[in-house]
Amino acid sequence: MTPQKTYRLEFALLVTVLVLCFFINLSLGSISIPIKSIFNSLFGTIENSTWEVIISDYRLPKAITAILVGSGLGISGLLMQTLFRNPLAGPFVLGISSGASLGVALVILGSGLFGGFLAAVLISKWSIVIASSLGSFFVLLAVLAVSSKVRDTMAILIIGLMFGSITAAVVSVLSYFSSAEQLQQYIFWGFGNLSNLSWSELLIFSIIYIVGIVLSIASIKGLNSLLLGDNYAKSLGLNLKQIRFILILATSLIAGTITAFAGPIAFIGLAIPHLTRQIFKSSNHKILIPAVFLFGAIVMLICDSIAQLPGSDYTLPINAITALVGAPVVIWLLVRQRKMMF
């Protein structure tokens, strides 16, 4: 489906805003660094070694993480909304984040049950990443299995909520047996954090992220067929089983790794696709996927800039900011349109 409108102006505008937000994000923080110095630091000339270290070891990886997280959650939300024919679908609502949380809780809190060497192995960052990805993958598989049995999409959302409850229950049981230190680690993970990724972790993160994005781009045609409904999509020659598997795989790779590295970040996955549809009056995924990518990255950079509380030494949990931004947006959309389109 070739769009009749190419939205060149809108895309140019979004790219400009993204670049702007990127540099503002680098500039703001407990210490404000002038944009000119950021340019100098990025392109080699050293003028202030403290700023240099702040940018290269802290702010630059954080800004890149914000871009990956925002765009990735937005795209996985878009994939889920189309796959489940439900405007309320998103990685958070469908229980993918709960699945990831459950995996992480089992690793962080459950490691106390094993003790010693095994605990040290289990608590490493990589086991958290793997546990989180596996958790989200299994929840998505369960959601998919149910969605092929029941045609009512409300049931799928309820199942997502139930996974949330199961996670909460398991966490409360585990927390009874774990140390205060472990509990704190789990709770801090749950706040969401964009800033504790090293360059090497960022590399792994981006590789998995890119695999997920490539799968999403390869599914554009299938996603567009799915806009008609399953039977029509099938009549257009689409292999439903295959596309469902690819979409779920892509989402669990993207949302799973994001949750693993940055914690469960709320509302971005749900709100970004809807905000994008407000600007790009299209349901065509060839337009929506790049637009959601840009939009998600911009919103996440802005949320992160706010969370850093520029000029102060405090940092707010990123999850609090995304929820404060995201929840009113969803309410506003519902009130304005009375109906959520997708």
Partner: peptide, 25 residues
Amino acid sequence: QITSKNLSVYELVALGRHPYTNWIG
């Protein structure tokens, strides 16, 4: 009913070409 009524008429009719178009449509 079709799932997404947000499609334009042209886009919807164009979906009929899917069996013939390339990987990205």
